[in-house]
């Protein structure tokens, strides 16, 4: 049971890891992207459609990257060049993504694909307990597990990571330093959307293996919530996403074991858990928030 829950946490949490890391990159540059949900949807459909056409999940995952980047690019244009409200624009981009994927996705509802197979790492996957928990996933899930530390290294140890973080704190400083904060933000938002798209790809190629309308059911919004919970730190964001995955996994396990609690109540737990961790962590986050985000999150004075 415990092994099932933990492996499930990784399997169901991986797509949220991608989205949360993407949102971390975007918010660290000073742009909140609620279009993450939309990027996950377009990425998922692009990945699914391309996998159906080509039969190759690898090309599908690449299409997912591209599919997720497009709505983010639209968001970037509107908030950076047109100075539109970030939260409203992000949500509208999500609705656009929902509409487009619903319309284009009708033809794919009955399609079946063979997605990524789990790759058991030789020897390591033989270790009892840890072998199953750590070394028996599909390729995208391994990428997701490594993404948090990789992003931490990028942001903390590289020059470009420093420029990214500085852009979120003060665009003027970056400008004075000789870089264009506009370009940095464009790249960060688009890269963030691409990661969310890869998250959508992971969802359809490694987890559900089918397509239904609105397949992400709020996972992109959960990712945005987790970034705040994680104080904009990549490794913590990944842990938060895995916690969400654990809640999904646990409620599915309980349902499968025929626990006498309504499936609807169990289905609420991942969202309620996200709200609870957000409630615990939100106070005092204003100090840790990139300074560029204060204008977006400040209304209401908290």
């Amino acid at each position: 049971m415990i092994v099932d829950v933990i492996t499930g946490a990784v399997r169901y949490g991986a797509c949220v890891v991608f989205a949360a890391e993407g949102e971390t990159v975007s918010e660290r540059s000073g742009v909140v992207n609620l279009g993450t949900e939309g990027s996950m949807l377009t990425g998922a459909l692009a990945a699914f459609a391309v996998t159906v056409w080509t039969g190759s999940p690898v090309i599908g995952a690449l299409a997912g990257l591209l599919g997720g980047a497009l709505p983010a690019l639209l968001h970037a244009f509107l908030v950076i060049d047109r100075n539109a409200d970030q939260l409203a624009t992000g949500l509208s981009v999500t609705f656009l993504g929902l509409g487009v994927t619903s319309a284009l996705g009708t033809g794919f509802v009955d399609e079946k694909i063979s997605g990524f197979d789990p790759i058991a790492i030789p020897l390591l996957s033989e270790i009892p307990f840890f072998g199953d928990v750590l070394f028996n996933y599909d390729i995208l899930t391994y990428v997701a597990l490594l993404l948090g530390p990789a992003l931490w290294w990028f942001m903390k140890k590289t020059r470009w990571g420093l420029i990214l973080r500085a852009t979120g704190e003060s665009g003027d400083v970056v400008y004075a330093y000789g870089h264009s904060p506009r370009k940095v933000r464009y790249m960060a938002v688009t890269a963030g959307g691409a990661l969310a798209g890869l998250g959508g790809a992971q969802l359809v190629l490694a987890s559900t293996l089918n397509w239904v309308e609105n397949i992400t059911v709020g996972r992109g919004f959960v990712a945005v919530a987790l970034v705040i919970f994680a104080s904009w730190l990549p490794i913590r964001a990944a842990l938060g996403a895995l916690l969400f995955g654990a809640a999904v996994s646990l409620q599915l396990q309980l349902q499968a074991r025929g626990v006498n609690v309504s499936a609807f109540l169990l289905g609420m737990t991942p969202y309620v858990l996200t709200l609870v961790v957000l409630a615990i962590a939100s106070r005092g986050q204003a100090q840790r928030m990139p300074a560029g985000l204060k204008a977006v999150f400040a209304p209401g004075g908290t």
């Binding site: 059911v217 709020g218 959960v222 705040i228 609807f264 609420m268 106070r283």
Partner: peptide, 19 residues
Amino acid sequence: FAVNETISTLLLNYVATLF
């Protein structure tokens, strides 16, 4: 708890549908 209302209301929609 200083939770941003945009995110909490969004997540509560999914809870409400299930409820």
